[in-house]
Amino acid sequence: MKRIITLIFLVASVAMAVAVAVVLFHQTPAHPTTQPTALRIISLSPAMTEALYEMGLGDRLVGVSQACNYPPEATKLPQVGSLGMTNMETMLSLAPTMVVTTDFERDDTMQAIRSSGVQVVEGHIATIQQMFESFEKIGKLTGHPQQAATLVQKMKGDLAGIHARFAATPVERRPRVYLEVWHDPITTAGSQSFMDDVLAHAGGTNAAHEISRDYPIISPEKVIEWNPQVVVLCDETTRGRGLEIVRGRIGWERIDAVKNNRVIDDLSMDLLIRPGPRLTQGIRQLCERLYPTESGR
């Protein structure tokens, strides 16, 4: 253990030394943030990468993470690592002036980047409202507030259109949805999660809303007791076999969603869990599955 810590420490200090060297010899501009023309952004957040392209800032991006798979142009940019595993050397070699980070990144890495004079924009997003705020914030920081406002307006308009589909259905009659984030052990999305808010905007009621956590491991008994009318499986590897899998579980065959054949296993999770510009597409798809007929019922 001690040896591992020493090794990590050693690697980290070498990385630091290299970082310092890179910063010193790279001759970063003296006042990077004051000159919009010099804006060089690395986005580690797939959602924010999409948002930046949407705001017309795609040409300011100099690096992304491996998880940034949309739009297609983004995948052609230099990659600085995967979520939570970014390579600082690569990042600094791209001479960024701004790094947009995620919840997954290590605090010490981000601190080191910040202390080398790069602006670090953090984004913890647990609700759709926070997502809009993050767009506005990045718009302001990049000198594109107008474009950000347009994006937010467009998405709010989309949401309003989606809400119309179930507005006539009173809250207590909206379908009870159980979201399964992972199956072994059973993991769902509680009221502190982004998914909880997404579900509400799609016209569903989160069966696990009573749990005040983000992604809790729960007792499978509880799911039977909730008796959800719809089950949504987030593991895309089970696509096409969701109903069979859920029905095969001991005691789950009596759940309404199973009896009425309402197990959804084919939604694109990139559209649904990513707080980006395409979220409203995902919400619309989910809403259409929850309310198959136009007027609700």
């Binding site: 499978p220 008994e221 039977i224 007791e225 579980r249 001991i250 005691g251 789950w252 065959e253 009596r254």
Partner: peptide
């Protein structure tokens, strides 16, 4: 009974 009972039994 089928349902929660069987699940817990298992």
């Amino acid at each position: 009974a089928p349902g929660v009972g069987q699940l817990r039994l298992a």
